[in-house]
């Protein structure tokens, strides 16, 4: 069972990568871009047949290790 965890920087926090990228997009003519934010995606493959239990497990992983609640939020989706 595959899950994709999307980790995003919490709104309001400095996002230097987003800032640098939006500057470049504007230079390229995409002047309607209002905001660019960076995050990351992590795919975990779990040996399980119970989707609810697997989701709980992935959520626990996010809270313990994969995301830092000080600066990040996360969401989990099943992709396979």
């Amino acid at each position: 069972m595959k899950f994709r965890i999307t980790i995003e920087r919490k709104p309001g926090l400095a996002d230097p990568e987003g800032k640098a990228t939006i500057r470049s997009l504007h230079d390229l003519g995409y002047t309607d871009v209002q905001h660019v934010s960076f995050g990351k995606a992590i795919v975990v493959d779990i040996d399980s047949t119970d989707e609810t239990a697997a989701l709980d497990e992935v959520d626990a992983m996010c809270q313990q290790l994969l995301a830092n609640p000080v600066m990040e939020s996360y969401r989990i989706e099943r992709i396979g």
Partner: peptide
């Protein structure tokens, strides 16, 4: 310790 450290302002 509280807080976190992220990428420098100017990357």
């Amino acid at each position: 310790l509280p807080g976190a450290l992220i990428a420098n302002r100017d990357l």
